[in-house]
């Protein structure tokens, strides 16, 4: 396989996998908290939080990337502060992961929200009347019932992160070996006549990774479903 791909393409595959993995992992707890707050809590500014969480879905990706550059760039409001404590995001793979994570965030929130809304609140109440503490109810009733939504959210986010292009190239650039993901490598290849074959190889790999992840999550979801029904 290493001979099949040029070193540049191979690097792009590894960077894409790394970026998508960390982006998905990093947004999971934040998306969980956001979804939980939107469904279960009443607080001022709830509509604003809902709107903000969905913004990356609505905005053109290059606008999201540009806003990330303004906020998290070395001259940016948050980026300058992060740089002081030694974290640089712009033009690094970590920046690509931030861009992918932000773009995937609404998908994860939506999936978690739906699964949370579908939970029969009486199940939680029943657990509480039987003496379970709120934390115990959360850990043994709420979270297990959310597993299908969690899996859906994870797979959607991973797929989105894998395919993200506009925000990534705007915020993290297209640096081979550092921030060049599969989509940016495909883009670069398509800019020169006669490189369609190399681009096609990357497309095949991209599709394979996404399908493998999809099948894995389907299998996990079936197992989770069986266990839930067994309860």
């Amino acid at each position: 396989m290493q001979n099949w791909l040029s070193p540049m393409e191979w690097q792009a595959v590894l960077i894409s996998a790394k970026v998508a993995f960390w982006a998905t992992l990093a947004i999971t707890p934040m998306a969980f908290l956001t979804a939980y707050a939107l469904v279960r809590w009443e607080f001022p500014g709830k509509t604003i939080l809902n709107g903000l969480a969905h913004l990356p879905l609505i905005l053109p990706p290059v606008v999201t990337g540009y806003m990330l550059l303004l906020l998290f760039g070395t001259q940016g409001f948050i980026g300058g502060w992060l740089q002081d404590i030694g974290i640089v995001l712009a033009f690094r793979w970590t920046g690509a992961a931030v861009a992918a994570g932000v773009m995937a965030f609404p998908l994860m929130v939506r999936a978690l929200r739906l699964s949370l809304e579908a939970i029969d609140i009486r199940l939680e109440q029943a657990a509480a009347t039987l003496g379970a503490s709120p934390i115990w109810v959360f850990a043994t009733v709420t979270v297990p019932l959310m597993i299908p939504g969690l899996l859906t959210g994870t797979i959607l986010s991973f797929a989105k992160a894998l395919g993200e292009f506009g925000a990534t190239i705007t915020f993290a650039a297209n640096i081979p070996g550092q921030t060049q993901t599969i989509p940016s490598a495909i883009y670069a290849l398509l800019q020169v006549p006669g490189q369609e074959d190399a681009a096609a190889r990357l497309v095949v790999i991209s599709v394979s990774i996404a399908l493998a992840a999809l099948f894995l999550s389907e299998a996990l979801a079936r197992r989770a479903h069986k266990r839930l029904e067994g309860l």
Binding site: L69, G73, T74, Q75, F91, I169, N174, S184, A188
Partner: peptide, 15 residues
Amino acid sequence: MDNVRAALTLVHLGE
């Protein structure tokens, strides 16, 4: 960057 104007923008922003 994917085009030369984007490279110019980075200098404009001081990035």
